[in-house]
Structures are given as C-alpha cells and as structure tokens.
Design a protein around this nucleic acid. Structure first.
Lengths: 235, 235
DNA sequence: CGCGCAAATAATTTATAAATTTTTTTGTTT
DNA sequence: AAACAAAAAAATTTATAAATTATTTGCGCG
C-alpha cells in the first residue's frame, strides 16, 4: 500500500488532450502564426494523428479564443491586433490587481515563502542564453510565469485564477512575437524585486500599482515593436 | 443589393454547434443533472446525432467547466457544491463590481437609455406565470439576464464581459435548482429598481454595492435551499 | 483583349460507421 | 472475503462517405 489515495491517479491521457497541449504551445510560441489557416490535412501531417482528436483539440481552443472556428469553413489561429493587446493588458491590470489584493489579504507565511522562493529562482536565471544578443531562455520563461502565478494564487477563487491564466496565455503570444525581433535591455528583474518587496511589506496599494505598471510597460514595448514591424512591412 | 455587407453573414451552422447549445441549455436548466454521467450512447439517443458532433460539443463544455471530462473514462455534468456556489458568487461580486464601475465611467446617453429599456421590459414581465404558486417564466429569465448583461456591457473589455457571462452561466444552474423547490417572495424587482436609479444618478459606489448585495442575497437564499434539501435527503 | 458571370472541378470540412483500446463489471477460485 | 481472470461495456481513434465551400475554367459581352 504505497499509494495512500484510493483513486488511482488520473495520469492516463487521450490523444485529444496531448494534441491540445501541443497545439496550444505552438500557438503561444507563435510557431503557428497569428491568422494562419489550420487546415485539417496540414495538421494531420504535422502532428501525425487522425482528425477526431485534432477536431476535439481545436474545439477546446476555440472556446479559449486562441483559435477561430468559422462554421463549415475550418479553423485558423486567432489574429493579433493592437486593439486586442490593449484590451487584454487593461483587463489584466484590473483583474490581477484584484487578485493580488485578495491574495495579500489572505497572506500566510507559507504563501509569502513560496513567493520568495519563486522570485529567488527567477532572479538567478539569465533572461537570455546569450549575453551579447538575445536568445530566448525557456527556463526563464517558465520561472517568470511561475512567479506571476504565485502572486495571485492566494486569492481564494479558482475561477478568477483561471481567468488570469487565460489572459496571461493570450498575452504571452504578443511577448514572443515582439521579443524575438528586438533584444530589449529593460530591467524587468528590478521590477520583480520591487513587487516582491511590496508584497512582503504588506503594502497592498504599492504592490498592485507596481504590478500594473509592470504590465503596462510590457504592453508599451510590444506596441512599439509591432508598430515598427508594421511600418517596415508597409514601407 | 439589399445586403450592404460584402461578406456573406456567417449564419451557416454545424451540428456540433447546435448540439453544443442544446447541451449547454439542458445543463444550465438542470435537465441534465449535476454529476450525471453523460455516456455517449445515451446522448446519441437523446439528441439523435452521431458521436463526432457530440464529442466536439462536450470538449467545448469541458473548457467552460460545465462538463467534466475524465480521460478515457467519459464525461459527466460538473457537480454542484456549496463551496463552488460561494466561490462563484464572491468572484462575480468582485468582477462585476469592476465591470459596472468601468461601464459607468464610460457612460453615454445611448448606454443609459438601453439600460432603461431593458429595465422597463423586465419590470413589466411577471416573475412567475402563476401568481399563486411559482411557475418559471422563461421570458422573465431572458429579460433578467439581459438587464444584468447591459449593466456591464459598457466596460470596454470583451474578455471581461466574456468572463462575467461565464460566471453568470455557472451560477444560473444553482438558481434553477433552488428556485424550482420553493417559491420565494423576495422582492427582486425593488433591487433592480434601486440599481437602475444609482446608475442613472452616476453614483458608482452605490450602484456597485447594490449589485453586490443583490448577488449575495441570491446566494444566501440558494444556500439555505440547498442545505434543507441536503438535510431532507439525509434524514 | 479584358472583364464578369456561370458552370464544373477540386479541396476541405463535417458526419457516420467501423475498429481498437481501455475501463468496468462479473464470476470464479484460493 | 480478497484476488485474479474473463467477459461486457464504453470510450477513443481511424477510416469512409456525404455535404459544403473555394477555385478554376470557359464562354459571352462590352
């Protein structure tokens, strides 16, 4: 009797679920580009499966608004737009502001310590694999996301957490698209330090406004990138 | 040239979408009961279709958390619980509070007039088809939902509106389950009147706290119902 | 000679039916 | 009673067929 739980762990997976995860990753990493048509034939070749699991995965992604499904006309990756970028950023500032405030209201030593550890791990991981030129470090991305997740996870509302995650996912796409073009020398780590400090100080207003500024600044950088990219295409 | 738009309207529908809508309605109206197993065979008989469209519909509902999909073990209607009721209510108060405040910030005559009309329609529709004993009036339910939708629709964030809708859907299930047991003589219409008045007065704090009180009160009533129901089952 | 419309062809999506795999149930044995 | 094996049931996936949409081609007309 090694396993104390009666229920066997649900580690069995269906093809539909694994395809769903792969598709989602590929969309968020922009390996499947915004606006790209997702023909069933193409996806079947690409991922080596039948259409039923693909179709199921696509239907889930439609609800998450990462994929657009036009009835009887197939699927495509949801396009990006400055309008959506701003809408998502604005919403994230509101909602994560709320969630962070609640998290801090419910603060416990355990939560603060988990946050501290998450920050520590993030701080000692380089942003870029190459110090000369930007080269995306996947480990940093994971730890960055984890730090932000920790900030809001103590808010005592799974639906709210889920919504924050979805906003984070949808915004992540903009980050990857923008970042791979220009190596920004923005000091994000200083911003993370300040947020952690405010949380540990139990200074709610400070923490919330720092977090919101953090997101606004990111959006500004991305917006500038997208505008110049649009210009270089047009010119 | 009657239709000015170039693109033909996307009114074509797939079976998957229509089944999705029917399933969702049936879950929200609790015709498919919380916790109920949704075997494919059963659903095929019930809705008279093949399994592909059913499967797609179920996968969408899983993301909306109205259906639970256990890997390789099929689907079932998400169960209800007092815990979830309170979590959803709490979250709705936060998020719709936010959305209403933003809506009022962006107030325009057109929006206020649309709200006024929605309230008018709701006010002149009876809550119960039978004045003696409660008999659900579907028209009232639709108008009620429309009034609440109007309150937040001016917040200038489609993602936020979408999230509010989802919370409303998930909470609606609790309403139907509770309401069909006891005819409550709560004066909800007075509460709606007060909310409308506060909005037209541009009194943000008042409007938000009235809306939140409205939701809290509903949750209290439902919780009492569910507790007595649980007792009568146990005793 | 180019433009626009119509018909036919091709490609793609949707739906049904069949096959495979996994889980659950049932019955037997220790 | 517990454990194992066999059978049944159910879910997942592949394969096939039907319906819909997009594209191309050809023809008439300005």
């Amino acid at each position: 009797m090694i396993d104390p739980a009666k229920e066997p762990p649900d580690n069995a997976t269906t093809l539909a679920t694994s395809i769903y995860e792969r598709l989602k990753n590929d969309i968020l990493a922009a390996r499947l580009e915004p606006g790209q048509k997702l023909s069933l034939r193409f996806l079947m070749d690409q991922y080596g499966t039948g259409q039923t699991p693909l179709r199921e995965a696509l239907n889930r992604l439609v609800i998450e608004e990462l994929v657009i499904g036009r009835e009887q006309r197939g699927f495509s990756v949801t396009p990006i737009s400055l309008e959506e970028l701003n809408e998502l950023t604005r919403t994230r500032c509101w909602v994560e502001g709320l969630a962070l405030r609640e998290s801090m209201q419910n603060a416990t030593p355990a939560w603060e310590e988990a946050l501290l550890v998450a920050h520590h791990r993030l701080a000692r991981t380089p942003r870029s694999l190459n110090p000369e030129q930007f080269e995306d470090n996947p480990a940093w991305e994971v730890l960055h996301r984890a730090f932000h997740d920790r900030l809001i996870e103590n808010c005592a509302s799974r639906p709210l957490i889920g919504f924050c995650m979805q906003l984070a996912d949808r915004l992540y796409r903009y980050r990857t698209i923008s970042i791979r073009k220009v190596f920004r020398v923005r000091k994000v780590s200083a911003e993370h330090d300040a947020i952690l400090q405010a949380v540990l100080d139990h200074n709610q207003e400070q923490a919330v406004s720092l977090l919101q500024a953090h997101y606004m600044r990111t959006a500004t950088v991305i917006e500038a990138d997208l505008r110049t990219a649009a210009l270089s295409l047009a010119g």
